[in-house]
Design a protein around this nucleic acid. Structure first.
Length: 717
DNA sequence: CTAGATTGACTTTTT
DNA sequence: GTCAATCTAG
């Protein structure tokens, strides 16, 4: 095998293919897990025993999947001896690489057509359909969609005495093809275990998953949790199951116990065919960082005592992780800003630096703060911001209502039986957002529809308002909404339009006329953000125009594929806004898993790191082991870490910067005098710090705004 | 009705 | 770990 692998890596790669067996590879941080995985895949194919399309690679997060896919070609090309580039690409194209949910999605779609995953707006809509007694004795004064979801799941799980309301809601979801993520996994595993589907021609993908796959590789096994088990068992039974991961990096325990899941998965193939291997070496972190990280995890400390610790392959850098505590988050931010300016004045580049946080909220706060100094940053989120904007999701729901209702009408004309009214769900979401539509009105209307066995759309669009039940308030508003919807629907220019701008403008002006509460911006910044997200949506609409099938209207294609398209577009153009190439990275610790950065700031912020259960240990451990050379621990109090103030000036530490530049293969000179000079110059010139040379006046205004926000934030706490 | 005890939320992701 | 809301005993 290739000479650039370590002995323990080669052992994994050379392990023979055995059906009905399990191989578990324990791979600590920076141990070359992905590289080994890809070598393994290549070896399986080259040995001739396994065809590319007989290999399935699964992971939980998009990031892990992206990581594998982006490195596939490079690694394969390097190993390649006899194939042409084209053949190589074909081999890679044949591999199945998915997130578990992505795979489940494909299976379910193939078996029952388009489905939608319920989101915030969906829950809000359904919430409109339940009466007071649903909340029992425990209703928060202002029930949030989260509360609702939780209670709903609770009702659903207790099989006995399930309320009628719950049945009604699940019926709507069933009929309209709306599922929760948990259900998605559930259904997929049902399709995979059912024997019925194997006969049908159209269920090719499902069938191939069941029959064709010979090797199932699970990347990041520490992310698995029990409710995925039925699906995973189905998929890997009888195959060779290869697991890569590190239980110390298990940070999704809030989804369910990883220990339990692993016990079950390791037991899938009974008998002796279970092997465990370790990748021992760490090529990423400095010994100083690893020593500190090891202190964080009790199990690790024990391993170290027993002499089992993995070998760190880098030399000492001479600088221990820098620990600082602040009583005020603003001080913390200012410290970070100052350190960044020092680092950049020495040998570091902005893009070397990553700031990791516990929460998405905190991430935004830091991004805003640095932005106000003109320091651009790039957020490493799994999804682009606009896709998670509930306002955008609402607009998409509007498009759904129009598209689905339109189809319902044309089907009705052909007199076909289409009992399940597919538009009900989206329409409820839409009506629920109308200002004057009370829960009660919507409930009464919907019950009336159930009684008459008709769709909600048909009812509000064709039954005269005077015939509606008297208890419905704000009839005119609701019917007016129906009339306006109808206008858009009958207007072929809208539904069959090829003009993204036209579509967007129509849908926005409809939303504007209706005065939907949720679209009202609460501030200038809010409005600007919405505008930006609309622009992003426009980009995807335009993209859809270029790649849609010939026989499909643009809107339908967009509704069908916008999620996937946005993700892949985002993946290919990850920094749409920030102008310069050299930007700082900001991420939650969860999203940073699998990545590495020369310099890492771990932000304790408002004290979440003080709450340490053993699972939080892992989060801290993951965060710390992202750092290759320099690690800052801010407000991260942990019993295992002793906080000795290392007050040495990093900027002037030539020895460290020489180490740094060598490690990153850079020819930059480490000259402390000029670093200090640069820093002084920056300080003098801008009174603070600005990379992008923004004029001082706008800078200070932005800074003041930010300060006000921050103070408000602290006061709220 | 009130003091004291108990419980749960806070946070992280998946299309 | 902390805070707020709810529950229970007297």
């Amino acid at each position: 095998m290739a000479a650039d692998l370590t002995p323990s890596q080669s052992k994994v790669v050379d392990f023979p293919y055995l059906p009905n067996s399990t191989l578990k590879v324990v791979a600590g941080p920076g141990s070359g897990k992905t590289l080994t995985l890809l070598h393994k895949v290549y070896h399986l194919i080259e040995s001739g025993e396994i065809a590319p399309n007989e290999i399935l690679i699964l992971s939980l997060t998009n990031k892990a999947v992206d990581n594998v896919i982006t490195r596939l070609f490079d690694v394969f090309e390097q190993l390649n001896e006899k194939h042409t580039e084209e053949q190589l690409r074909e081999i890679i194209g044949d591999l199945e690489v998915h997130t578990v949910h992505g795979l489940a999605n494909r299976v379910v779609i193939e078996n029952e057509g388009i489905i939608n995953i319920i989101e915030e707006n969906g829950w809000r809509g359904l919430m409109k359909l339940v009466s007071e007694d649903f909340w029992k004795n425990k209703r928060p004064r202002m029930p949030s969609t989260k509360d609702f979801k939780k209670l709903f799941e609770q009702y659903k799980n207790q099989k006995t005495g399930t309320k009628d309301v719950v049945k009604k809601l699940t019926d709507i979801m069933q009929n309209c093809g709306v599922v929760t993520n948990e259900e998605l996994i559930d259904r997929a595993s049902r399709y995979l275990s059912s024997d019925l589907v194997s006969e049908s021609e159209t269920m090719q993908y499902t069938r191939e998953l069941k029959g064709k796959i010979k090797v199932v590789i699970i990347d990041e096994f520490q992310d698995l949790y029990p409710s995925l088990l039925p699906l995973l068992r189905r998929i890997s039974l009888g195959k060779q199951l290869i697991l890569f991961g590190d239980s110390n990096q298990s940070i999704y325990s809030f989804l369910g116990s990883n220990k339990e899941a692993m016990r079950a998965i390791e037991g899938i193939h009974t008998g002796q065919d279970f092997h465990v291997m370790h990748l021992h070496d760490n090529f990423r972190c400095t010994p100083e960082i690893m020593a500190a990280a090891t202190q964080v995890i009790p199990a690790k400390r024990k391993e170290m005592k027993d002499g089992e610790i993995e070998k760190v392959c880098k030399d000492k850098c001479g600088v221990k992780p820098i620990m600082e505590n602040f009583s005020n988050p603003l001080d913390e931010l200012e410290f970070v800003r100052d350190q960044i300016s020092q680092l950049v004045c020495a040998s570091a580049r902005l893009s070397d630096i990553a700031i990791l946080t516990r929460t998405n909220n905190q991430m935004q706060l830091i991004a805003d703060h640095l932005q106000s100094y003109g320091i651009n940053s790039h957020k490493l989120t799994a999804q682009p911001d606009w896709m998670t904007d509930t306002r955008i999701q609402f607009l998409i729901d509007l498009m759904k209502v129009i598209s689905l209702s339109h189809r319902e009408e044309s089907l009705e004309r052909k007199n076909s039986m289409n009992r399940p009214w597919k538009s009900d769900f989206s329409l409820i979401v839409t009506l629920g957002a109308l200002k004057g539509a009370t829960n009660q009105s919507i409930q009464i209307l919907y019950n009336e529809c159930l009684r008459r066995d008709t769709s909600l759309w048909r009812y509000i669009s064709s039954v005269p308002v005077s015939d509606w039940p008297t208890a419905v308030t704000n009839k005119r508003k609701i019917s007016n909404c129906a009339i306006e919807l109808q206008k858009l629907m009958n207007n072929g220019e809208f539904l069959y339009s090829d003009d993204p701008m036209h579509i967007l403008r129509e849908i926005c002006s409809f939303a504007h006329e209706m005065g939907f509460q949720m679209l009202q911006p609460t501030s200038d910044g809010d409005a600007e953000q919405f505008r930006q997200h609309l622009e992003d949506m426009y980009t995807i609409l335009k993209l859809c125009l270029t790649n849609r099938p010939n026989d499909m209207p643009l809107i339908e294609w967009f509704l069908h594929s916008h999620f996937e398209q946005s993700l892949s577009y985002y993946h290919q153009n990850p920094v749409p806004r920030a102008g310069s190439r050299d930007v700082l990275k900001i991420s939650t610790i969860h999203s940073s898993k699998g990545l590495e950065f020369p310099i890492v700031f771990l932000m304790g912020g408002l004290s979440w790191f003080q709450t340490f259960s053993q699972f939080e240990d892992n989060v801290l451990y993951v965060g710390m082991t992202r750092a290759k050379n320099l690690l800052y621990l801010l407000n991260t109090k942990h019993p295992g870490l002793d906080c000795e103030p290392t007050k040495r000036n990093i900027m002037a530490n030539e020895k460290f910067w020489r180490y740094y530049n060598t490690d990153l293969n850079r020819a930059t000179a480490a000259d402390s005098m000029s670093a200090i000079r640069r820093y002084d110059c920056l300080q003098r010139k801008y009174g603070g710090f600005s990379i992008n040379h923004r004029p001082f006046s706008t800078l200070s205004v932005a800074r003041n705004n930010k300060l006000i926000k921050l103070v408000a934030y602290i006061a709220r706490k």
